[in-house]
Amino acid sequence: MTSLRMHARTALAAAALTAAALLTAVPAAHADTAPPTLSDGFGLSQAGVPVVHSSTDFTITVTTPQLSGMHQIRIFLPKDYAADPTKRWPVAYFLHGAAGNVDDAAAAPALHSDSMITVVPDGGLKGWYSNWVMQNTAVGTANWEIFHLDQVVPFIDANLRTLTDRSHRAVLGLSMGGYGALHYAEDRPDLFGHTAALSGAIDFGMPAMRGAVLATELNLPGGLCAVSSLQCASFGPVVDSDAVFGSPYPVFNADHVWNQVNPAAPVNLAKLSNTDITLYTGSTLPLDSFTETATENVKAGLDQLGIPNRMDDYGNGSSLAPSCDGGHNYGCWAPALADYIPHLQAAFSTSS
């Protein structure tokens, strides 16, 4: 058993180093227009004053017993939100990637749509949109799924004029957030009628996908950058490699949590039978060659179950946009979202 574990650890560590290479974040913007006033509730307490980018773009900071520390929620409103106080709007939840934050959404202008409210909740540097197996690590309490689904969603519905049925609520994300989007849609089909994963870590049956999680837990880019001149992402304090999903090693069912939450597992894909599903990926090494395989695996699983889905494998990016090189970056994700949002708008408008 020891030799099996050592072999698996070596393979996962190599995959983790590769998978960590291109994760990015985007700086915040600044402005001074007053936003709507929101009321505390559902376990969320606001701290400080909102960061205001415009009258339809603002960020609040909240605390919750489900997470250690303070966490931001950025909100994009349609331009006509204040003009028509009787109108209710569909909602899209956008989940950022590892080493990112809520301001990443500014890199994709299509997310600020005049046809919907977009909510961008903090997912942590390595939250993985999960209630962690270990709650006593250096990052403290980490119940991200409870925060997002049981607190943020009802908080937004209580404070903003939303359409609250699943047909008018979507969850989409990229990289780590691609995993979160597909997992949340599978775990809570009562909440989300639409989902999209871009360059998503959406098949935990692949060592490379587990390696990507390990890279964030162990903050491997931070360690590499400490001994080089590279500008690398940081995933925060190092935690145990079992912290998020338990043991990643397929020995005597030790990896049962990974298998239970694997978005590509047929039992989980079957939960999307009544969900509008869209998948995007590039194919450029090092990272999107892995997300391409994961995305193809998910599509194949959906097709086998007879579940309709849309997939755009834009390869080296030439078919998508001049800014896209097929890699793990907003040069590809921004135009992919610009392609997706009109589809989502149309789906919202035809929902009863």
Rank of each mutant, 00 (worst) to 15 (best):
M1N: 12
L4M: 13
H7Q: 15
A11K: 13
A14K: 11
A16R: 00
L23D: 12
H30I: 14
A31G: 15
D32N: 15
T33F: 14
P36T: 06
P36V: 03
D40L: 08
D40R: 05
F42Y: 12
G43V: 04
L44C: 05
S45L: 10
S45D: 13
S45C: 11
V51K: 11
H53P: 03
S55I: 09
D57V: 05
T59H: 06
T59M: 06
T59I: 08
T61R: 13
T61H: 10
V62P: 01
P65T: 07
M70R: 07
M70P: 06
I73G: 00
R74E: 04
F76D: 02
F76N: 03
P85S: 11
P85D: 09
T86L: 14
T86K: 12
R88D: 06
R88K: 14
A92R: 03
A99P: 06
N101I: 06
N101W: 11
N101G: 14
V102Y: 01
D104P: 05
A105K: 01
P109V: 13
L111E: 03
H112G: 09
S113C: 15
T118K: 04
V120W: 01
D122E: 15
G123M: 14
K126S: 15
G127N: 07
S130W: 13
V139S: 07
V139R: 11
W144S: 02
W144A: 02
E145R: 10
F147P: 00
V153N: 00
V153H: 01
L160D: 04
L163D: 09
D165S: 15
R169H: 09
V171I: 15
L172N: 02
G173T: 05
G173P: 04
L174A: 04
S175Q: 06
Y179W: 12
Y179G: 01
Y179K: 03
A181N: 04
H183I: 07
Y184T: 04
P189Q: 09
L198M: 11
G200P: 02
G211W: 00
A212H: 00
L214Q: 06
L214M: 13
E217Q: 14
N219A: 05
P221Y: 03
P221E: 04
L224V: 13
A226C: 07
V227T: 15
S228L: 11
S229H: 13
Q231F: 12
Q231Y: 12
C232Q: 10
V238L: 10
V238I: 15
V239K: 03
S241L: 13
D242R: 14
V244D: 08
F245N: 07
F245H: 12
S247W: 13
P248G: 07
Y249S: 08
N262L: 08
A265F: 02
P266C: 10
N268A: 11
K271I: 06
S273K: 15
N274Q: 14
T275Q: 04
G282K: 00
L285G: 07
L285V: 12
L287F: 03
D288Q: 02
S289N: 08
F290W: 07
F290R: 00
T291Y: 02
T291N: 02
T291D: 02
N297Q: 09
V298H: 00
K299V: 08
G301W: 00
L302A: 04
D303M: 08
D303R: 10
Q304R: 14
Y314H: 01
G317P: 01
C324P: 01
C324T: 02
G326W: 00
A336L: 06
A338T: 07
P342Y: 12
L344I: 12
Q345M: 07
A346L: 10
A347R: 15
S349D: 14
T350G: 08
S351M: 10
S351N: 12
